[in-house]
Amino acid sequence: MISELKMSASDQNQAPESLHTPADNTTHFGYKTIDKDDKVSMVAGVFHSVAKQYDIMNDLMSFGIHRLWKRFTIDASGVRPGNKVLDLAGGTGDLTAKFSQLVGRQGSVVLADINSSMLNVGRDKLRDQGLVQNIDYVQANAQYLPFEDNTFDIVTIAFGLRNVTDKDMALRSIYRVLKPGGRLLVLEFSKPEHELVNKAYDFYSFNILPKIGELVAKDGESYQYLAESIRMHPDQETLKAMLDNAGFEQTTYKNLTGGVVALHKGYKF
């Protein structure tokens, strides 16, 4: 069931206040409030639709900067040969490709995504690059990770957490599968630090981004959802508090590109 909040044209870029605190059995899908049970299938619908054009859209939408954000994540991960890495919501495998080369033969990387279409695109892409020896593919929901306790040295989730229905549950699940000493890195859109950047970013997200989606991926609605879901995602401090609540220690975050994106990091000890 979808209950859509009616907004005037001038309000369209504003995240509705009433949607910030949904009732227990509801959650957000962009600016819409929906039943929690419906979110997985609705998000799946978005990503099934955009999977094939996902990489090219990322390059177009971010002017290629998403590659630098992902490099920053890898640099901050402290990955070393022999590590076991879980690339959660790994999609088309950008992080997995780099991790696979850095952990070497002794290490391993699990590319996990809830969406089969994204996982298929990622698997095909990595195999075409000749990256086969140390990568496993798992279709998994971040809230119910199908791995034993204390399995991974590093877990990353890049541009995936905001699509998860119950983020707190996902963070607890990630905490469980991390080894003591392991770390989680959450790369996600966030709140720009300066108001001017915020306004320019809003204009771009709600007026240009859906049009690029319409032109390239033939799916403007999915990119409208993308813009809305970014606004509904917790800001830097809130997400840091969520990591703390899940049990992570020494939690920090770094704003990238003026806070358009933030990298949160937390350790399990």
Partner: peptide, 22 residues
């Protein structure tokens, strides 16, 4: 500068990062 175990299909031999811990 990390030398990869094998050259990838897109002819990548070397990876450059700013990972300096190891």
């Amino acid at each position: 500068f990390t030398v990869l175990e094998r050259v990838t299909a897109d002819k990548q031999t070397l990876m450059v990062t700013s990972l300096t811990e190891h």
